[in-house]
Structures are given as structure tokens and as C-alpha cells.
Write a protein that binds this DNA or RNA. Structure first.
Lengths: 217, 217
DNA sequence: CCGGAAATGATACGCTTGTATCGAAATAAG
DNA sequence: CTTATTTCGATACAAGCGTATCATTTCCGG
């Protein structure tokens, strides 16, 4: 019987190399040869792991997505029971990848998103990740809402929509930071303010301003 | 004296071709030859208009940015005087490029943003556009806030932050729609709900829920 | 210890890329 | 009309790409 190698672990190793290179030149800018060199394997080895470049990129984007969602999940699990608002805030900035140490991951993510917009197959794994994150946020928001006594007359809180908002906001802020339109601090500020609003909205009820009472009829 | 050609208009024409192709394969996927063919000029003509590919892409991204900001500005100017909330909502969804007819423009924008994350020079024009849009939103929000009598005790409204939030949200929603994580309708819904919140927040004041009064002390 | 299947990695191939080159065509001024 | 200059577009070229090929090496099972 012939030699056996652990393809799965090699694929992961190659995937790491893909990410490192995608961080420098974007997904389409990575070449099979550079990947091989980075992963310290031969070009042939890369070819035997993936039928072609497209499959390699697909595996890589899937890998990144899983890593991010996993990290967010971990963060949630490892967080001690504290104010739901704080948890939500930390989680959101974890998703937004604003911390300097995750800047590379954010850049990789953004380049993949950009590429997926014109390369449908790549979009699949991204959708999966987004769905996971949105679900996680929605559940968290629901929990937070349930811990608050509800106004019986008020409209339902619609956690799905709130989750979508938060996720899109986080993503938009990430790209704005990477482009250099916002600093990481400004983005954090925006995110925290938004979460604070969300939280406050659950804990308070609204009344029309006295100065506007005249418009009542 | 020799023949003279209008380089500026040709550059614009080529830029259109670049956009059409970038919409199909991303900025790095456009080739000089394809651009020439699309613009119905020779390869040599493209070369005489731009020193190299990078300059061509830079001109194109600048062109797109100006077109979008111009369109948003127009929309604002052409809008009849009506509720500031409505205007803000329309403007936001104009920025988010959610309507089907602007899907291509949105895709182009997103691919350029993704590419700019790993190609610093391209980020310049994008920053300019974002700054313009943010400024415009901030001014609009300020106007809206000033038309409302302010609580003297309340915190300042911070229109810059609100503008940043709205811009990032619009951008995030756009990408989520393009990836296929959200439908255009869901994105519109999120955007409108956010603007409604913003508006309501200006017109109302908050009181702690009666059921939470016990936590006061 | 050894036979054979699997893994290896260097090399080859066909294409496409961005860019450079250059003779021919075009045209405004004299 | 002539001429000086610019524009033109086809072609050339080197580099880099993804992929295919194949003799060689490796190593598990019997």
C-alpha cells in the first residue's frame, strides 16, 4: 500500500497561505505558485489538493467564514453573564473586526465579499456565514428583549430586523475603516452608540415632546 | 498642425467601458484589450489616454464616485420640500443603490471598495466620495434637528455620528444584497426602520418604563 | 524485504497579460 | 499643395498565469 497524507490538514495549511496572500493582493491576485511557496509545498502538491484555483479559493473563503463565526461564538460562550447590552456591543465589534489584530482578517473578508459580487460561486459560503451571524445576533436580541417586561400595547420588537441592522452596520463600518474613511475609534464609537440606542429603546418608552403636543389633535 | 482629439471625452468613454467590465469580473479582471473593444477604440488609443492600467482604474473609480455623489445631490435638489424624514429615507436608499436599475453601479462600487482594501491608491477617490456623502447626510440631519425644538437638558444630537451610522448601514446593506444575504426589500425595510427611529428620536423624549422604576434608587 | 500504488516536484505548454514599438494615415497651418 | 506633427492600430515581446505531464521517490501491507 502506498504513502498516505492528511489532505484535510494540508488543505487548511494551504488555505492559510491563500489568506495571507489575499490580504496583500486580493483573491484574484493570489497565484498557485505563490500559494505553494507560502505554504512551503510544491506547486504539484497544491494541484493535488484542489482541482483548480476556483476550488482553492472556495475552500479558503469557507475556512475564513468558519473561523470568524467560530470566534464570535467562542466570544459569546466565554463571556461571563453580564449586561446583555455589553455582550451585544462586544459581539458586534468582534464581528466588525475592528481591533488591530484582526485587521488582516477584515481585509481578507472584504476582498472576498468584493470578489463574490462578480463571482457567484464564492458568494455561497459568505451567505452561510452571514446567516449564522445574523441568527446569533437575533437570538441574543430576543433573549435581551424577553428579560425586559414588554409593553402590551407596543409593537413587537422584531429582533430579525434589529439583527440585520446591526450586522450590516458592523460590516459597513469595517469597510469604511479599511478604506480609511473612518478610524477604528470612530467606528467603535458609532457601533457602541447604536447598541446603546437599541438597549435604551428596550428599557424606556417614548412620549411625545411637550413642545410638540400642540400638533396632537 | 496635426490632428487633435478630445482626450477628456475619450477618457470618459473608456471609463464607461471599464465600469461595464468591472461589473462582470471586478476591477482586476478587466483587461486593456477588453476595454478597448468595449469602448470601440484600438488598444493603442487606450494606451495613449492612460499611461498604464492603474491610472485607468483610478480614473474610472473617480468617475464612478462622482457620478454617485452627483446623483445623490441631484436627488436632494430635485426633491420638493417635504418631511425631512422622508427626504432622509429616500436619500439613504439612493446611497444604498438598492433599486434594480442601480444594481450594476452598486456592484462596481463594491468591487472597487474590495480592491481598494489591498490597493491603497484606489482608496483615495473612494474616501473623497464617502466624505462628500457623509457631509451631505450630516448637514441634512442637522437641518432636521434644528427644525425641532431642542430639550435644553438633553445631550447634543451629534449629527456627524448619525451620518456615519446611516452611511455605514447603507453600505453594509448594499453589500448584503449583492451577496444575496438579503433581498432588496429586506434592506429597504431595515433602512426605513432606521431612519424612522432617527426621526422619532428627535420628536420624542424618553422615560423609564414604569416596570423598571424599582431599579432606580 | 519487497512490490506496487500513491505522492512528489520539476518541467513543459498554451494563453493571456501589460507594455513597447513603429510604419502608415490623417490633418491643421503655411 | 506641402509639410510637420500627432494619432492611429497592428504587431512584437517578455513575463506570468493555470494547468498538464511524467519520471522519480516514498512508504505501507504482506
Amino acid at each position: 500500500m502506498p504513502k498516505q497524507v492528511d489532505y484535510e490538514s494540508r488543505r487548511r495549511r494551504i488555505s492559510e497561505a491563500v489568506c495571507l496572500l489575499a490580504d496583500e493582493h486580493g483573491p484574484e491576485g493570489v497565484t498557485m505558485r505563490d500559494v505553494a511557496a507560502r505554504a512551503q509545498v510544491s506547486l504539484g502538491a497544491v494541484q493535488r489538493c484542489f482541482r483548480n484555483k476556483e476550488e482553492m479559493l472556495l475552500f479558503a473563503v469557507d475556512h475564513v467564514g468558519e473561523r470568524i463565526t467560530e470566534r464570535v461564538r467562542d466570544r459569546l460562550a466565554r463571556t461571563p453573564a453580564q449586561s446583555a447590552a455589553t455582550v451585544l456591543g462586544h459581539l458586534a465589534s468582534e464581528i466588525a473586526l475592528l481591533r488591530e489584530e484582526h485587521r488582516a482578517e477584515a481585509r481578507i473578508w472584504l476582498t472576498f465579499v468584493g470578489h463574490a459580487a462578480v463571482n457567484e460561486p464564492l458568494a455561497g459560503p459568505l451567505r452561510t456565514s452571514y446567516a449564522t451571524l445574523q441568527d446569533l445576533l437575533a437570538r441574543l436580541i430576543t433573549e435581551a428583549a424577553e428579560s425586559i417586561p414588554a409593553d402590551e400595547g407596543a409593537a413587537p420588537p422584531d429582533p430579525q430586523r434589529k439583527a440585520r441592522t446591526l450586522l450590516a452596520l458592523a460590516d459597513g463600518l469595517t469597510s469604511h475603516v479599511l478604506i480609511g474613511h473612518l478610524t477604528a475609534e470612530e467606528a467603535e464609537d458609532v457601533l457602541h452608540a447604536h447598541v446603546a440606542d437599541l438597549w435604551e429603546r428596550m428599557h424606556t418608552t417614548r412620549v411625545r415632546k411637550p413642545s410638540d403636543l400642540r400638533t396632537d389633535a
